[in-house]
Design a protein around this nucleic acid. Structure first.
Lengths: 340, 340
DNA sequence: TTGAAAGCGCTACCAT
DNA sequence: ATGGTAGCGCTTTCAA
């Protein structure tokens, strides 16, 4: 591995000049600049990051923090996709992405107890997923590093956040059931409102129902899995046996609901329509193929990267919430005819 | 952020003494050691990694490298789980895990063109997935960093590798069909043999068939997805209409096979038994619930971490292939009775 | 335009 | 047992 010093010696100039040339800084004659650049390429010079980090107090690293349980989440990997988009975009700008999965103990201990932060390993942070509690987030913010929330948000404190357009997506899914298929008794199966995505999706559902002059019926349960989807549908049908359509907070719940419906001899979509949310890879292969709302997870990661780059670049952006648009993917579980 | 110097000044000793004490090195009196340790805790001292890295030429970072397409793989995330296990284990030892997803261009350009390696960002590497070609691997090895292959291997050059016990798993799945269910016409649906996991699973199938004196029937196709599983089953039934059981190289293929079987009015498991491989999260919810072979992905990651720690610790282990055991998970698609 | 040199914070060698 | 100090490779200020 060649060093600045070696290049300098070879050229008979000082390391300062070489450094300036290689960092595209002023104060070097065009000829010398060229010579340095050429020799650097020739010698396969690459800066030693540790040295640069030490002297600049920056790391060129972004820390992707997620709850340990959630990283490779059940059924479909939400966060790996986001991390993927993040890495793809950031690696092009000279940044690396580090993964940090938090145990419950680490969440309790707070961000100050995280070695990666204590040792100043990162220039910026992404906190992903609703399982990171507000207290932890606030403490993290106080560290002063550029930070971004993804799929989570602070209710009261404005803070830069990237979210999918959950409300809009769920509204259009619900509207589809109402306007295209003429449903009136539409029940929402959802998870805890402390999860921002559940809350927003519920809001979208409510707003669509209200605009249509329909009465909302919401079944809430403590998780959003295939199993809880099954339980939620049973509750729903007990409370309102005349339910003709289901909006589920995610695809796993939707698929669970379909399974139970079948057991109860309600054929989907003939006797009951179902729409999900997320467009996980299995949605297309569900039986019947699931109508759902696509969340562009990789783009969420790319967008997070862009926002972070701005902030690290010194652009003081307002602590806004940025939304990535979602799109209804029509398949068969809503009652639409089979695609040819 | 406090520094060694500050602690030293406070105690009226030299940084050398403080450094020794904090690094648990000999040459410090017990009393002084305690004083240093106490003050360090009190001052919330944490070493600056960049400085340490510069002076030790180590980074405390492991690079997890995977093909860009494969990281959040379709259907079920294999590599995120492995990365998860790796991070979990490594973070306890003071290491961070960085993600690097390779584009095709980067693979073509070789490891020397990777900024993360040029800049010496990592102490060790994990190359995960069969999509990284031998040439790239060999070039990477030449870098001299401790490196581990996961779910991939070099055919000729011995090299430290972590793999699931694909052969054993597939053998026991096949034996189950033979010995418990009495099948004789068992067809294997598999992907390219250049993928080590496919090859090994095929070997397990062959060996079980041979031991039982049965004739192997293998349908090979260019990918191992739900779609190719569908195509493969059609081919299989065309070639051998009397097939009564299917061993699929993974769960996605198995589920695809089941779908086609149903279309052809072959009920699973009544008319045809099916077993898969991987035990993806959907396997339990397939219809019928899929009998498959569990691959403990998180443990693969943990094991990789352990091996890497050994190698980074200087233990020169032989370039052996380490296998993580797999286990047949019996559900219903093989013909076993419904669990109560 | 260029150079000299002072750090950045830590480790490790050589003295004492 | 402890201290002094020379790096590690780079950036950046101050002089020339």
């Amino acid at each position: 591995m060649s060093t600045l010093q070696e290049i300098a010696d070879n050229l008979g100039v000082s390391v300062a000049t070489v450094s300036r040339a290689l960092n595209d800084k002023p104060g070097v004659s065009p000829e010398m600049r060229q010579k340095v650049l050429n020799l650097a390429r020739e010698m396969q010079y690459h800066p030693n990051l540790a040295a640069r980090n030490l002297s600049t107090a920056r790391t060129n690293t972004v820390l992707f923090i997620v709850h340990r349980r959630q990283f490779p989440a059940a059924m479909d990997p939400f966060y790996p996709y986001i991390m993927h988009g993040l890495e793809e975009r950031l690696s092009g700008e000279g940044y690396s992405v580090m993964l940090l999965t938090l145990s419950d103990d680490q969440i309790d201990a707070g961000p100050n107890a995280l070695p990666a932060l204590q040792e100043q390993r990162a220039d910026a942070l992404v906190l992903a997923g609703p399982d990171i509690p507000p207290g932890f987030i606030l403490a993290t913010i106080n560290l002063g590093l550029p930070t971004l929330l993804v799929d989570n948000t602070l209710r009261e404190t404005p803070f830069p956040t990237v979210l999918a357009d959950n409300e809009g997506g769920c509204r259009s899914a619900t509207k589809h059931l109402i306007e295209v298929h003429g449903h009136k008794n539409i029940t929402l199966l959802t998870g805890p409102t402390k999860w921002i995505s559940c809350e927003e999706r519920a809001n979208g559902y409510k707003s669509a129902m209200k605009s249509a002059g329909l009465k909302a019926h919401i079944v809430q349960i403590d998780d959003t899995t295939l199993n809880t989807g099954q339980v939620a549908l049973q509750t729903a049908l007990k409370e309102r046996p005349d339910t003709t359509a289901i909006v589920a907070s995610n695809d796993a719940m939707a698929i669970g609901a379909i399974r139970v419906a079948r057991h109860l001899n309600r054929e989907v979509p003939r006797d009951m329509a179902v729409v999900g949310f997320d467009n996980i890879s299995w949605a297309a292969y569900a039986d019947p193929p699931l109508t759902t709302v696509r969340v562009p997870t990789i783009e969420v990661g790319r967008l997070a990267a862009r926002l972070l780059l701005e902030r690290m670049g010194g652009t003081i952006t307002a602590p806004t919430r940025t939304t990535v648009s979602t799109k209804l993917v029509i398949r068969e579980s809503c009652g639409c005819p089979v695609n040819i």
